[in-house]
Design a protein around this nucleic acid. Sequence first.
RNA 1: GGCCCGUUCGUCUAUCGGUUAGGACACCAGAUUUUCAUUCUGGUAAGAGGGGUUCGACUCCCCUACGGGCUGCCA
Length: 476
Amino acid sequence: MSREEATSPDVSRPVVTRFAPSPTGYLHIGGARTALFNWLYARGRGGKFLLRIEDTDRERSTPEATAAILRGLTWLGLDWDGEVVSQFERKDRHAEVAREMLARGTAYKCFSTQEEIAAFRAEAEARGSYALFQSPWRDADPATFPDAPFVIRMKAPRTGETIINDEVQGRVVIQNSSLDDMICLRSDATPTYMLAVVVDDHDMGVTHVIRGDDHLNNAARQQMIYDAMGWEIPVWAHIPLIHGPDGKKLSKRHGATGVEDYQAMGYPAAGMRNYLTRLGWAHGDAEIFTTEQALQMFDLAGIGRGPARLDFKKLENTCGHHIAMSDDAALLHELTAYLVAAGKPALTNRQNTLLKSALYCVKDRAKTLPELLEKAHFALISRPVQPDEASAKSLDTVSRGILQTLTPQLRNVSWTKDALEPILTQVAAENGIGFGKLAAPLRAALAGRSVTPSVYDMMLVIGQDETIARLQDAAV
RNA sequence: GGCCCGUUCGUCUAUCGGUUAGGACACCAGAUUUUCAUUCUGGUAAGAGGGGUUCGACUCCCCUACGGGCUGCCA
């Protein structure tokens, strides 16, 4: 199979992967998944995961974007090794390599101006054809060089083919005749992306380049630079991009595209990781798994070749499982971070304590953090309880009367479900109503909601005194 | 325009020439439940189209369609 043949592992080298975003905006969901795949691959193999900010485009790069990317990765729990590398700061090294290519004869100085190149293209277009720009300086005699600005271009082979052995895409053959002599160093001596990635990946010891498949074609040009410098080519893995629910390329039109938006919407990081891992990757029937399990299972062979669409329902379902699975302390911690991210007020100590004791009965019914908070509403509020519209309806005069007869019976009982259950059932029976009819006003009185956990759980969580007080409030 | 990549239920996917094409989400029906939810049971639902190769193709090859990418002194 081509995917197996594509493998050229060098088991003697430890795995080094990297995530290399350009800081032109927030960390979008597709980039987050790319980072996750790199992280999983490296960490699952005892390797290193590096972070490099591709900030060579000074016009569009901002420190705010870099900060947002770092925040996003941190939230997702994707920790990187060593310092964050700024590509811009390595520009001297890039220029050095360009000069070395010059010395090796694998690159050349090109004095063609941008106007000349534009004119060349315009002419080709006017003829209705398309032609690669071929620099007249490729084989020029240095004696003819003008005293003018120049760029350094790769002296790319014009015949033959370049073969990309990709772990995901298989063997991809690119005709060299379809590639031009790309610019490596601009006339202002700054490197282009094409040169900078290769130099950085090489210098950083990157062994596996896992990135979006929009770079698949670029890999051929980059491979030429590796060859020109006599460097070892990394293992390529070009993964399909994520699309919106409508199958179109992900954009702002689809709403939330930044990972921080997801945090603010209350998706737990563990659920997010699980969902993103499964998006475009599979390992048999594994659906819900911990990060430790993902680390064990993740491999390049499991990555699919088609673009995957975002499915919020499945995201929610996955997150629901993770909320139910996570331990209370971690959940509370995450909840705190969520409130900050969502710009909501923090919980008081009292609320925290009550919420903690309420978790057992709300954890497995929430798919997101705000949903969890809503289910735990009864534990977060203090008297007087304000019933919402739906629950207020069940507090009519009849049910108020019932609450009045019930409350005194709650005073001298041991506060356990076993002791409370017979009392409530009996009160319901005495009034000739089903238990459901009694539960409704209880919910309204205790939580001010018509949808809550079991009334027993609520009573146990808030305690005897608070229960009686809330019932008395509602009974008058 | 040229080149490159992709295409299995609505969605994420399994399958690596021989399966009643499996699982998950969603959806529908039923059961459990003091509400909602959870949980449980069952169900609907797929190989883009057309040619080959082969005893046999979802799987290999070609063409078409559709989607995406690259084709910048952007990354």
